[in-house]
Amino acid sequence: MSLTRPASPPRRSRQSRRTTFRTALLAYSFMAPFLALLLLYHTWPIIFGTYLAFTNYNIISPPQFVGLDNFRELIRDQQFWSGVVNSLKYILVVPVIQLLSIGVAMLVNQPLKGIGFFRTAFYVPVVTSFAVVGLIWTWMYQQSGPVNFVLMHLGLMNRDSSLLNNPGSALYAVMFVTLWKGVGYYMVLYLAGLQSIGRELEEAAVIDGATRWQVFVNITLPGLRPTILVCSLLSTISAVKVFEEIFVMTQGGPVGSTYTALFFTYAKAFQDFRYGYAAAAGIVVAVISLIFGIVNFRLTRGGRVDA
């Protein structure tokens, strides 16, 4: 963690007030350009966004304070809650992507010939834009396309229709894309975690007659605990806030089956021009993702305090 503080100079006694002032001035001028942009594009959105949630605002006329009206409306807004439900369904991605990434990381952690190629190959989707990935998978999912070809040959599908056009399957089809694009990212993090465990412990256990499974459960998993904690937190939060894949692939359709909470926020702001109402929805989404972040933290910590 970056919380480690810089080493302080040992002496402070003889510093005159003037040099202290000069140092501060210098320090702040080093930071000025960064802080200016940070204030404008990171801090201001939090302040103004919170204020907007209590107003009616359409950019053209000044914001009009309406108290809790936006939140009252949100509570009764069916579309918003079905968006929230879809966002929560998206959390299904989290356990799958974490287990898969751990498996893949263990696989590419083996000293096999050509393993570097596989690591690189699994990482390619991560460095590709969602604009590209979304389009590619929209084509892959087309009727008579590659996905249907495979599914029908495996006997998992009997009617040739695009998974993205079917309200029952569209959300899961998009989830698969998130999974496909994200596995490589978590693989790299788990790989770093695995390499920090060290082989000696595992080898010692094997010599003592432990089975592969015992080694995995008693040594590898506990060793990965900090990484699992961080990774599942990251993926839970990004699952609740899923947006880009929806934006490129389905725009919330068909019949609202992939309409997520953050897509609602986007649509209210940039299609209906109700910026205040959208900001209120944004705050509710933030609270929900915070709650699920905490739940996730409790679950992965497994009741342990030291993890």
């Binding site: 202290t20 990171h42 966004g49 926020t265 900001a279």
Partner: peptide, 27 residues
């Protein structure tokens, strides 16, 4: 460097990472 407000600024920036920013795009 040692200067007044260093820790304050550091933790304020750190807080920005955690604070929700769903309205970022809108604002």
């Amino acid at each position: 460097m040692r200067f007044a407000g260093r820790d304050l600024i550091f933790y304020a920036i750190l807080a920005l990472v955690v604070l929700p920013n769903e309205s970022g795009l809108i604002v």
